[in-house]
Design a protein around this nucleic acid. Sequence first.
DNA 1: CAATTCCAAATGTCTGACATTTTAGTGTTG
DNA 2: CAACACTAAAATGTCAGACATTTGGAATTG
Lengths: 257, 257
Amino acid sequence: MSLSPLPSLPARADAHELATQLARAILSGHWATGAPFPRELDLCEHFGASRNLVRNALARLTTAGLIERSAGRGSWVCDIGEWHLLDPQMSEWLTGLDTPHPQLIREIHAFRLSAEPHVAALAAQSADAEDLSRLERAYRGMCDTAADSARYREHGEHDAIFHAAIYRASHNLVWRQMGHLLRPSILALIAQSHQQATTLDDSLERHWRVMEAIRLRQPDEARRAAAYILERTAADLGLSMRHITEHPLTSPKGTGA
Amino acid sequence: MSLSPLPSLPARADAHELATQLARAILSGHWATGAPFPRELDLCEHFGASRNLVRNALARLTTAGLIERSAGRGSWVCDIGEWHLLDPQMSEWLTGLDTPHPQLIREIHAFRLSAEPHVAALAAQSADAEDLSRLERAYRGMCDTAADSARYREHGEHDAIFHAAIYRASHNLVWRQMGHLLRPSILALIAQSHQQATTLDDSLERHWRVMEAIRLRQPDEARRAAAYILERTAADLGLSMRHITEHPLTSPKGTGA
DNA sequence: CAATTCCAAATGTCTGACATTTTAGTGTTG
DNA sequence: CAACACTAAAATGTCAGACATTTGGAATTG
């Protein structure tokens, strides 16, 4: 075995694409934490790419905290605690992953649960016309795609945009950057639980309440409404709310799948 | 003018170092938003480095959202809203900057003001022995370096570690990553306002209250105590609390320097 | 057995060439 | 004169092979 012989991936001549494939292999748990990562020359041979291109791809994995490299010693896969979850590139890699890392989805949701209501309150204080316009466009997109169950993927995109717009409306650069983080979590939710019509209606109504509270500059109401959305999200994800809210992660370690 | 002829920087043969120099030039506002970034060959000539190394450095700036590149068109400096403030590498670049970007420091502080009290409450629920140990070590480091005003830099490091330990004690991977963000803000504070003995005593006592509340598993008290720290921080930074808390950034645009 | 020397392995860098993308210009043609 | 196709230049992306540097272990030697 030695190197978990690289899931046979399609060979392509593009650093961005290669980095994506390797990153998704790591995010899917193809290598164990601390395991040695294939050497440059092996990757070159396997993918039929030049060393230059491979090094370019590996550099991206390094800046994302997925692997660690050292001259003379080689490369290893980093622990999940070192991954730069807030790197927008990471969000791109996480979305569209066939089997999203279950711990990551839970951690992201736990974060949203503790942060998003407050962000919504901030948004209600600071949102301008442009922010409201963004929210409305996303909301209409959600409505338009709710009827047709075949467009669930499209629906998820609008959903993600809606929540990112909330973060952006806080008019704080840090919170705004955090909006990227939501996409994988939301899309994973939509993908794994094809929601029914009644469920979607309920979800739409909860989103509408947040948007309206932001428009009317009612921070406390926005906070409540945002928490209200996340309750439904948690239910759809099959997460125990009490567990998360009271003890974000008191269980000893991995808590498995 | 054309390209703002690159602040004459010491030439070194290390991609990491070159990236740091260029990044700090951008973060200092040496190029305006949207301005064209020097071409690869110009950088090669200016720094006496190979194109390979220059490209490596530029790749890092790209992944951090500082510049945008496109084949055939060139490179430009991105808007501050696109910068990946949550990239740990960015924190490294920001710290030690002679003239930290004033808007960034304010934005980071505004973020902390809205988030850190809640994180402290989470920490009070989830902290384990190891977390408390980290907090204590950092606190003792702050105490040891408080007496000697010449060790203010060291004091700032312990301060930053203390706050990062709070985020980490939330036992959520996302909040934990966010701990990196604090360092530049805290070090900038320490650097620009050499605090007096009485001020430091007060600061230490406020930190102690947070640590004690976390140990005793008192979330509400931890929240209050964390907010209490940030009040002092804001005062030392010369920021108007009311302005930040009520309207994080209502002013139209850049708000200048 | 300990200290040193040497070598192999892996990543980091250099050089020069070619490929690809984009913009701007330059004609040609209706 | 306007619209179109073609060409050329500029910039980034990729390839190929060589050398440099760092690291760890193995062989050598006192």
